[in-house]
């Protein structure tokens, strides 16, 4: 199995733990990743607010390279994934848009490559196959699966899972032997890129998510989006100071737990060093 891999800017910058753990899980499952050569930023969170066409043409510039190679795309970042899905959606639903995008990127694009998020991609293997690949089951670990927004909303375009009560990441965590806790804020927004514009509001939004996971008894919050990860993981101390709370929940990518359970060591995938939150308590629990 060969897929075009679009890591996006975050995975090659701050969030290498996501990049490394996705690659590790794919290796464990026998998936070959072909990184799109000389890919460019998808334009999120700004391109689409500058103009409708430019918001589509920027991600199309990388997408067309996968299309020419005849490959489907794996885009682990939720924002990158949704921007690419919009390209295909508009090519197929807006008359004239295919021609406009093609002219803007100076290449013909047809919208024929399927674009997978890492959640539905891994879930498509089937939970039995995932469970078979597990070498170190995560017995007794209570995991809050946090999906965020971009994978499930708006549901007409982004339909990885149910928009209000998604379950695929929970299923994957259970396949690892962990306990997927039932909690209500799976898709509540973390504040996303507003962290670069209004820290107070964003921190208030992230706090609600962390607080709910804490109240539900989670040992760890897992995410599938670099922006969610940064907002929850990096801001934990800031939230504690601002709201006089004492949250100490590790926040990691769900692929890190998967890679670990399938035999990767934490140092290989950045599980030990790629986060600000308390990963030591997590490592103590799972080792």
């Amino acid at each position: 199995m060969r897929y075009a891999y679009y890591p996006g800017c975050s995975l090659h910058s701050m969030e290498t733990a996501y990049d490394r753990s996705v690659k590790a899980v794919c290796k464990h499952l026998g998936v070959e990743l072909w990184e799109i050569p000389d890919w460019v930023c998808c334009g999120a969170s700004s391109g689409h607010s500058m103009g409708h066409l430019v918001g589509l043409a920027i991600p199309a510039k990388s997408l067309v390279k996968a299309e020419k190679e005849g490959l489907d795309v794996l885009a682990p970042c939720a924002a990158c994934w949704q921007r690419m899905v919009w390209v295909n959606h508009e090519i197929n639903n807006s008359p004239g848009m295919k021609e406009k995008i093609s002219r803007a990127i100076e290449e013909e694009i047809n919208g024929t490559s399927k674009i997978f998020s890492i959640i539905d991609f891994l879930a498509s293997f089937g939970m039995d196959k995932i469970a078979q690949a597990v070498k170190k089951p995560l017995k007794g670990l209570k995991v809050a699966s946090y999906y965020g927004c971009y994978y499930v909303k708006p549901p007409k375009v982004a339909h990885v899972d149910d928009p209000e009560n998604p379950h695929l990441m929970d299923d994957l965590m259970q396949a690892l032997g962990a306990e997927a806790i039932n909690w209500p804020f799976k898709t509540e927004c973390c504040g996303a890129s507003m962290i670069f514009q209004d820290v107070d509001t964003t921190v208030s939004m992230s706090k609600k998510v962390i607080e709910m996971a804490y109240k539900a008894g989670a040992d760890v919050i897992v995410t599938a989006c670099p922006v969610c990860e940064m907002n929850l993981d990096m801001r934990m101390e800031q939230i504690n100071k601002k709201f006089k709370t004492n949250f100490k929940i590790p926040v990691v990518y769900f692929t890190e737990l998967m890679a670990y359970a399938m035999g990767s060591v934490p140092q290989q995938i950045g599980l030990d060093s790629g986060h600000c939150s308390d990963v030591q308590s997590l490592l103590a629990k799972i080792s």
Binding site: C9, H12, S13, P37, D38, V40, C41, G43, G51, L53, V54, A57, I58, K61, K100, R103, A104, I105, E106
Partner: peptide, 19 residues
């Protein structure tokens, strides 16, 4: 970040303005 052709986005943005 290092790229072979870092000019791609600029060209796309300029083309979009023209279109």
């Amino acid at each position: 970040p290092k790229m072979k052709n870092s000019d791609q986005v600029r060209r796309v943005v300029e083309n979009c303005k023209k279109i």
